[in-house]
């Protein structure tokens, strides 16, 4: 038994501090992303989430430039970008697509500049890859308090918004009719989204952060239709996906030509989530196939 376990868990997996930190941070990020992500999917704002993730590249590279922790850079850039999106009209259904796109374009332009300056002043090109794709195994344990604080703010925000947020996500008209300040709720939600994205970016990298935000939530919403259960399921799926990925990445050291490289955790997270999404859709697809009716009237 222990021999089998040892084959799955490489020696030192549980005692490694690197793994412990990665597991803690990713679990927190998964819970926050699950909570916020369910609303992101219901509101159809995956693109906003993705854009905020990409724009946190700007923050990450900026932080690297001035020498502060990347988490702060991610957070500041995401919140600022969310504010600008709100300003140019993310509340309109069609306009928000455009608002998001414009902000994203400008943000990426800045990211290009910062990364260029990083490479000029710090004489390194590694910053691009670690910011963009994340490097879970390099997270310092000193970052944990900040991660906990960010997580607490985001979860409390969503909990406080609660039912008004759900109602205004499902039907803004209905929410407005009941006296809910839809726009204000939207702004507060964007703030929670920005924090969630900063955490996800910190964990699996800026351009993959959407996976953790949208993936588990989309799977959960395919499995259950109750929002509360979906949030719990999304958090659980997120934790399962990240922990399993940490394990796989830790084991992957000698998979490819004995390359002696850890495969990126982010790759496993994304792949597991994508497979999960496909599998969660299977029952419905099978049901639909059975329902296709004959068509004798078709001319």
């Amino acid at each position: 038994m222990s021999a089998q376990l040892a084959a799955i868990f490489d020696p030192g997996f549980f005692t490694s501090q690197i793994v412990q930190v990665a597991a803690t941070v990713s679990a927190l990020a998964a819970v926050v992303c699950g909570t916020v992500g369910v609303f992101t999917v219901i509101r159809g704002q995956s693109f906003a989430g993705e854009a905020l993730g990409d724009i946190s590249t700007t923050g990450g590279s900026g932080a690297f430039l001035v020498g502060v922790g990347p988490l702060w850079g991610f957070g500041v850039a995401a919140v600022a970008a969310a504010a600008v999106m709100e300003l140019i009209g993310i509340q309109r259904p069609r306009g928000r697509d455009l608002a998001t796109g414009i902000v994203l374009g400008a943000g990426l332009g800045l990211a290009a500049l910062f990364l260029y300056l990083d490479s000029v002043y710090h004489n390194t090109t590694g910053a691009t890859v670690s910011i963009v794709f994340g490097s879970m195994f390099t997270i310092a344990s000193s970052a944990i308090p900040a991660v906990i604080a960010f997580s607490a703010i985001a979860v409390c925000l969503v909990a406080a918004l609660g039912r008004p947020l759900l109602l205004s996500s499902i039907s803004p008209e209905l929410a407005a009719a009941r006296g809910i300040p839809v726009r204000l709720v939207g702004v507060a939600y964007l703030l929670a989204l920005a924090i969630a994205i900063a955490l996800a970016a910190f964990t699996i990298g800026t351009i993959l952060s959407t996976a953790l935000l949208v993936g588990p939530a989309a799977i959960a919403l395919r499995l259950t239709r109750s929002p509360a259960r979906a949030i719990a399921a999304a958090a659980a799926i997120g934790i399962a996906a990240t922990w399993l990925s940490i394990l796989l990445a830790y084991d992957s050291y000698d998979w490819y030509h004995q390359s002696g490289k850890y495969w990126p955790v982010s790759f496993f997270v994304v792949t597991l989530i994508f497979l999960g999404y496909l599998m969660a859709g299977l029952p419905r697809r099978l049901r639909r196939r059975r329902e296709i009716a004959p068509d004798p009237a078709r001319g």
Binding site: I292, P294, D295, A297, R298, G299
Partner: peptide, 21 residues
């Protein structure tokens, strides 16, 4: 949608004397 030929249905629909399409 049936008249426009977009929805499967039992029965017949004639538009201008010809089967719907």
């Amino acid at each position: 949608r049936v008249i426009l030929g977009l929805q499967a249905a039992h029965g017949t629909v004639l538009v201008g004397g010809a089967p719907r399409s």
